[in-house]
Design a protein around this nucleic acid. Sequence first.
DNA 1: AGCCTTTGACCAGCG
DNA 2: TCGCTGGTCAAAGGC
Length: 276
Amino acid sequence: MENSNLELAAAISEVGRGYDIIKQLQGLLQLKSRKGQDAVQMQELAEPLFRDGLQALNHALCILKSGVSKVEIKSENVMIESGSPVHSSGSVVCYESDQRIENGRGKKRRVGGNSWITNTTMPYDDGYQWRKYGDKKISGTNFSRSYFRCTYKEEQGCQAKKLVQQTSDKLDMPFFQVTYTNKHTCSSQKTRSPSPIPQISTFGSIELQDNSINEKLHLQESIPITPRQLNQASCFGDLNLRDIIRSVSMNERNCEWDLDSLLRDLVDFASYDCPL
DNA sequence: AGCCTTTGACCAGCG
DNA sequence: TCGCTGGTCAAAGGC
């Protein structure tokens, strides 16, 4: 009972943080419309806010649906088992120690350190710089698995790793499972240069860039959908909060973003009674 | 020149 | 113990 109260307090705190960040974004966008800030400047300012806001809301969902107060589970030698997550927040699945992940042939994989999994329509920009160190065709699947480690592993000893596995090739919405292992201990967040060509780890910034880049990367415009639809989908593990922002930023780019309706939709999203 | 991805080889865990 | 598989290493080449 005491734990529930603590978890609720933690969730409220995270939602409050998300609210504050959205208000900052609102101010930023109003500034943009008044002063005509250019897209690159806008992107640089908005990206960290988007990221922090998503993180706060993801944490809150994780807490509310599971009772676990942190997305990251502290443990050594985490084992992950498909189908038995401790909980799911729609976009984030958290695992405790002694869990395993199973491949298509029944083999179980041990993952060292703190691990958590997100499902996404693209291996989005998480604000960190990654270096790809491997790529493996996984038996029983049609897709290869890509292995990334933090760019600052040598310099700063950061042990963070990321594993990207495409799980669906639906033309309108390819789907990826992203497994993170170990927390970042480096200070790499948002230190990349504002290159117009996104790297593999920077898909999340594509929305504000030109269409030709999207075409080169075979990325597709997401269909604008309401937060209610998104939350329903999120509850069934089909979409995540980042997709909301993606959808929102698409509309914003097309000059269709109405701040009042966005805030109304976010309130609607937050109050929707998830069937799970 | 430096950093990146690609890719084949190697190693360790698991059945 | 052995074979299969996933995870990592490191050389090579590209940008």
